[in-house]
């Protein structure tokens, strides 16, 4: 009993415990399932962005028909398109994540009233965003790839689908998924963190 640091009347208040990751996982999965429609819309926002990026990138894998300066111009045009695609992708995903956090301010406030720690709330959103980012990016890459490959096949370009092409596609698939996941988390974490830090009264007051 050490009472010299704190006045006796104040006592020593106990601290809230940190919950295991499995609890957060359980709650997040439930939340994604019940909000399936909403989750799918968010995920398809991510999917479309990555599909755009992936389609631009896939084109680069086909052999370049131009030569010299024309080839150089085509290459820089593709780089420009890829950067634009990433920007569009970033804004789209940012918008989806902002919405999915702000529409749940009240829920965040309620959880804090029940004793949730800020970090727990952030973890919930990271899990949800991570799952949607992962699935959205994977499906998005595949769609973007397919959209470029099918017309190429019909255009008589079947001989371009070499093992080098598939190898390049695999590398791009991994890149797309990592980029999609990264952007989703970058968009989600600061939003979720600032929402979790709000005083519960402010979170509960929000009308959305």
């Amino acid at each position: 009993m050490s009472t010299h640091t704190v006045p006796a009347s104040v006592g020593t208040p106990e601290q809230q415990i940190t919950l295991p990751f499995s609890k957060a996982w359980e709650i997040s999965m439930k939340s994604i399932k019940i909000r399936l429609g909403r989750s799918l819309i968010t995920a398809s926002g991510i999917m479309l962005g990555i599909a755009f990026f992936s389609s631009v990138r896939t084109v680069v894998l086909f052999p370049i028909t131009q030569t010299g300066a024309a080839a150089e111009a085509a290459r820089s045009r593709h780089s420009f398109l890829a950067i634009m695609a990433l920007l569009v992708c970033f804004v789209g995903i940012m918008n989806s994540m902002l919405m999915s956090v702000t529409e749940r301010f009240r829920e965040i406030g309620t959880m804090k009233c029940l004793g949730a720690l800020d970090q727990f709330i952030v973890t919930l959103f990271i899990i949800e965003a991570g799952i949607m980012g992962l699935l959205g990016s994977m499906i998005g890459w595949f769609f973007g790839w397919l959209i470029m490959v099918i017309p190429h096949l019909f255009g008589g370009g079947a001989r371009d689908l070499t093992s080098a092409f598939f190898g390049g596609s695999a590398v791009q698939a991994v890149q797309s998924v990592l980029i999609g996941l990264f952007i989703t988390l970058i968009a989600c974490i600061p939003t979720a963190r600032s929402a979790a830090k709000m005083p519960p009264a402010a979170a509960l007051r929000s009308e959305i």
Binding site: V10, P13, E14, Q15, Q16, K112, C113, L114, G115, A116, L117, D118, P200
Partner: peptide, 13 residues
Amino acid sequence: QLDARELAYLRCH
């Protein structure tokens, strides 16, 4: 005087 963890404990219990 309570920090975030103590406040969460109070709200919880």
